[in-house]
Computed example of a mutant assay.
Amino acid sequence: MTHTPTTARNAFGDIAPALADYTDHVLFGDVWERPGLSPRDRSLITVASLIALYRTNELPFHLRKALDNGISRDELIEVITHLAFYSGWPTASSAVSIARRVFEEANA
């Protein structure tokens, strides 16, 4: 296994090195690099899924990744607003709070 610093390796590689390796090589290597969808589309799908499933722990990372993949702040807020009607007000409200923090940190 490689020991190059990555987000996964820095976050949990010390306690779960195999999980960090799978995250780096399988998830973000193989899955995210498949040609069927663009990185922008994958980010949009991932952010929407995390919001709908109330996965607030992973949401900040993927909101930043979505911005990096060309999704605008306005588009992300529109996703959150749209999902309020499908995944519920609490998921949207939590996502807005997280998005605000991410946008402030990213100056987006």
Rank of each mutant, 00 (worst) to 15 (best):
H62A: 08
R101A: 12
H82E: 09
E58I: 09
M1N: 04
H3V: 06
V47R: 01
I45S: 06
Y54C: 12
A95D: 06
R40T: 12
S49N: 09
P17Y: 10
E104T: 12
G29L: 10
R55F: 00
A108S: 14
Y22W: 15
E78N: 13
R100M: 04
H25I: 01
V47K: 02
S97D: 07
R40V: 12
L53Q: 14
S97R: 15
V26D: 08
S93D: 12
F28Q: 09
D68L: 02
K65S: 09
P60A: 09
Y22C: 14
G13W: 01
T23V: 06
D21R: 07
R9K: 08
P90A: 07
L53Y: 02
L59W: 03
P5V: 00
T81N: 12
F12I: 13
S94Y: 01
A84K: 11
S49D: 03
L67Y: 02
F61W: 11
D21W: 08
D24W: 00
E105M: 08
A99G: 11
L19K: 00
F12Q: 04
A99Y: 06
L67Q: 02
L37K: 13
K65A: 12
H25C: 10
L83T: 08
A8M: 11
T2L: 09
S72D: 06
L63Q: 08
V96R: 06
A18Q: 15
T56E: 08
V31S: 09
R73A: 14
D30S: 12
A108Y: 02
